[in-house]
């Protein structure tokens, strides 16, 4: 697969899903197990992505400046700091730790 094929296929798939919501009858959501599972899949994917993006490089587990940076983000989200500020603070924390040589 070329990078363009990957980009276009994934984009079309996500766009098609958006349209699907306007085409399926609302009764789909009346089954509680379906709605509940769909919401939980989003939670599971986001949590898995956080874990993988924070502690892995390729197929190796790596603990570096990302771990304290994401931990800082969690604290700031708990304190209801706005989204953009948290993302910038996390990046800055990782950058500073690397600059000081305290973390890889």
């Amino acid at each position: 697969m070329t990078l363009w094929q990957i980009v276009l296929l994934a984009s079309i798939a996500c766009l098609a899903l958006k349209f699907a919501g306007y085409l399926v009858p609302s009764s789909v959501l009346e089954k509680p197990a379906a709605a509940r599972t769909a919401n939980l899949v989003t939670v599971a994917l986001l949590a898995a992505l956080i874990a993988v993006q924070t502690v892995s490089t390729g197929t190796a587990l790596v603990v570096d400046a990302r771990v304290p940076a994401v931990a800082l983000a969690a604290v700031l989200f708990a304190l209801r700091v706005p989204f953009v500020v948290v993302v910038i603070a996390a990046a800055a924390a990782a950058a500073v730790l690397r600059l000081l040589g305290w973390a890889a």
Partner: peptide
């Protein structure tokens, strides 16, 4: 630190969904 920004951004999307025990359990398990 942009590699850390991605994890923080995902955390921001996840955070509002963690109001009950069930999603918290799923998040930890996943």
């Amino acid at each position: 630190g942009l590699d850390a920004a991605a994890g923080a951004a995902f955390l921001g999307l996840l955070w509002p969904r963690l109001r009950e025990l069930q999603p918290v359990a799923v998040a930890i398990g996943a």
